[in-house]
């Protein structure tokens, strides 16, 4: 009877979805550990440091780890300035209606599946990169990075914009009233208040960039190698996801090849989980504060 009187559908719904998402994540984690265990037994740490990958002989994940890192780095270095700039303009300069339209478009863009970006990438971006940098071919780390930067731009932009908007209006008024210019107000009063939210947005963007498979697979060239010299990003390579996309179906289920791919999956899983966790723990409380502020304003 007591339990019945305490029954709250909302809470039960929340609890069950929380439980489901936690347990699914846990199952995936355990599955990856179990499936990848043999390769760590077989190759040891050489799996992480080896740079040769020939199924049936040797499995070294370093080129894929390197590729994922490089591609993500390129994606963020291009997306961040653009996203931040447009977030500042949208939040601080544009009027409410234009802002809503832009936000809507950005959220629409964020919903386009990766394969569509991949097709645009393979037909337009590779050609553009090839011609711009006068390369033999347009498939490269750089192309994949640019493509990813376009893909994560909406995510980073909308979340940064939310962070900027959640900075109380009073800060802006106060800085303006002291005689600061519009630009100084943004720089000294608004950005410091939003910096955590922006950092969170970038981390979530990194998470998305690392996890994106098919669009990267179509433009990176899928060659398991670390370029020489290592900073030559205008050459073909491989990321963890493109490797999984290429060989997953063929290796399905049995043998060291499968274990090695599961090992790659585990590396990616741990990295993305870690980054997303940090991202959420930064964004979370801040987003909450933004909502509280809005409620306070309404009350007044």
């Amino acid at each position: 009877m007591w339990a019945l009187s305490r029954w709250r559908p909302g809470r039960a719904f929340f609890a069950s979805s929380f439980f489901i998402s936690i347990s699914v994540t846990g199952i995936i984690f355990i599955f990856l550990i179990m499936e990848s265990f043999p390769i760590f037994q077989h190759e040891g740490l050489g799996f992480l440091s080896g740079s040769e990958w020939y199924p049936g002989e040797v499995y070294g994940a370093l080129p894929m780890i390197y590729g994922t890192g490089v591609v993500t780095f390129i994606a963020v270095s291009f997306a961040l300035p653009l996203a931040l700039g447009s977030a500042i303009i949208t939040s601080e300069v544009l009027s409410g209606r234009v802002r809503l339209v832009i936000k809507m478009m950005m959220e629409l863009l964020a919903g386009i599946p990766g394969v569509v970006y991949g097709l645009l990438g393979i037909s337009l971006l590779t050609t553009a990169v090839k011609n711009t940098f006068n390369l033999i071919d347009g498939n490269s780390f750089f192309t994949a990075g640019i493509l990813l930067s376009i893909m994560i731009l909406p995510t980073v932009m909308t979340l940064s914009e939310d962070a900027l908007r959640s900075v109380p209006k009073e800060y802006r008024d106060q800085a303006l009233a002291l005689g600061l210019k519009r630009s100084e107000t943004i720089l000294y009063a608004v950005l410091p208040g939003a910096i955590k939210g922006i950092a969170g947005a970038v981390l979530l963007g990194i998470g998305r960039a690392m996890g994106e498979t098919i669009s990267v697979m179509l433009v990176i060239g899928s060659l398991d190698r670390i370029p020489r010299p290592f900073y030559n990003i205008f050459t073909t390579g491989q990321t963890i996801t493109s490797k999984l996309g290429r060989e997953g179906a063929e290796a399905l289920g049995v043998g060291y090849h499968w274990n090695a791919l599961a090992g790659l999956g585990l590396i990616l899983f741990l990295t993305v989980m870690g980054i997303t966790f940090i991202g959420n723990s930064i964004v979370g409380p801040l987003a909450g504060r933004g909502i509280n502020n809005k409620m306070k304003q309404k009350k007044r």
Partner: peptide, 11 residues
Amino acid sequence: ARTRGADLISG
């Protein structure tokens, strides 16, 4: 056979 001269892998 291994191909050291390859620049790109396709499917």
